[in-house]
């Protein structure tokens, strides 16, 4: 049986304690919440921290609160399952509920947290393999090697950000609070994900993702998340498209964000698609043009469980469907 490498487990009860421990051990420590991603990666030898800081008992990070004036505040330890079932999330941020409900399996959603899903380690078919497998291959840029197996001449790692909720958070323009030994900082979701497969996010090793704040839903808000996968459970996205729009009384689009997940090392905002929607009434031709923008913007590589040609082609299909999801009730 695959087993975890040795480490010291340090459960904490407060964000401050967590930050202090992480600060003390530096890169030798890793925080863990649900563990569904980290422990699997550790069993594959991808991480060998000396100390694992257990966040599960930080009660303050389990809070979820919505009010129409301030929006939604999600403690980082809220389980994906609780988010997927929450009435306020379902009503005001349906794409988030959908994305959370499409992660993994019921067990993974019950163990896994929103903070963990946003900090999900990037994935690649050359990387998410056992130590022996990677050794047989000769390793790769992301871990122990100096060559990206996906793009041989790439100076940076091309692993995929395969979080379902990441593109959605960015579509909703969420703010992410990071707490470190020297205090807190708030980062916009669009700045949180670093477009480098080797480092999924800008979170520093001594920081804790504490809370996610979503702005109140704007007038006439509509949103959707579409996911491409081969099985209806377990699978990470081969592609994800998140769309969030707002409309005025006349039904014209006043705000639009179209995000692509599971293509690059960070969610990709397709600004051209959003620009096409702005001011539009979601006419079929507009949606098709916006989907075309998405198709052009996404550049998948051979690093997931479907060919890049297929994923490229599905960009337009998924985008079209996500756009129709938000347009349909308005037509």
């Amino acid at each position: 049986m695959l087993r975890l490498p040795a480490f010291e487990f340090r459960p904490v009860r407060s964000v401050e304690d967590a930050a202090a421990l992480l600060s003390e051990y530096g890169s030798d420590a890793l925080p863990v919440a649900g563990g569904t991603d980290l422990y699997a990666n550790m069993k594959l030898g991808l991480f060998t921290p000396r100390v694992v800081v257990g966040l599960r008992s930080i009660a303050e990070l389990r809070r979820m609160h919505f009010d129409p004036a301030h929006g939604l505040r999600l403690g980082a330890l809220c389980s994906l399952d609780s988010i997927a079932r929450d009435p306020a999330v379902l009503l005001h941020y349906p794409a988030l509920a959908t994305a959370a409900a499409m992660v993994g399996t019921p067990e993974i959603r019950s163990m896994g947290t929103i903070g963990g899903n946003l900090c999900l380690e990037t994935r690649c078919t050359y990387y998410n393999q056992s130590a022996d497998w990677r050794k047989a291959l000769g390793y790769c840029l992301k871990r122990d090697g100096d060559l990206c197996r996906v793009a041989l001449h790439s100076p940076t790692c091309k692993a995929i950000n395969a979080s379902d909720t990441a593109p959605v958070m960015q579509a909703y323009d969420a703010r992410i609070s990071l707490v470190g030994p020297h205090g807190a900082r708030v980062v916009a979701a669009r700045d949180f994900f670093s477009n480098d497969g080797a480092h999924a996010t800008v979170r520093q090793s001594d920081e804790i993702l504490a809370e996610i704040a979503l702005p109140p839903p704007p007038r006439g808000a509509r949103s959707s998340y579409r996911k491409l996968r081969l099985r209806n459970a377990f699978d990470f996205p081969l592609l994800g498209v998140a769309v969030a729009v707002a409309t005025n009384e006349a039904g014209a689009c006043t705000q639009a964000r179209v995000l692509l997940g599971a293509v690059g090392s960070a969610p990709i905002e397709v600004e051209g698609a959003g620009a096409l929607l702005l001011g539009s009434h979601f006419a079929a031709a507009t949606l098709a043009d916006a989907a075309e923008e998405v198709f052009r913007a996404g550049k998948p590589l051979e690093n997931a469980n479907a060919s890049l040609l297929y994923r490229k082609r599905m960009l337009r299909v998924l985008a079209q469907r996500a756009l129709e999801d938000v347009a349909a009730p308005l037509r």
Binding site: R3, T36, Y39, A40, K43, P106, I108
Partner: peptide, 23 residues
Amino acid sequence: ELGQCGACTVLVDGAPVLSCLTL
């Protein structure tokens, strides 16, 4: 051993968890 099959599920705090990925 990696949370990919569900065979190791037990209840913790009354909720199903994957015991292979739980410390």
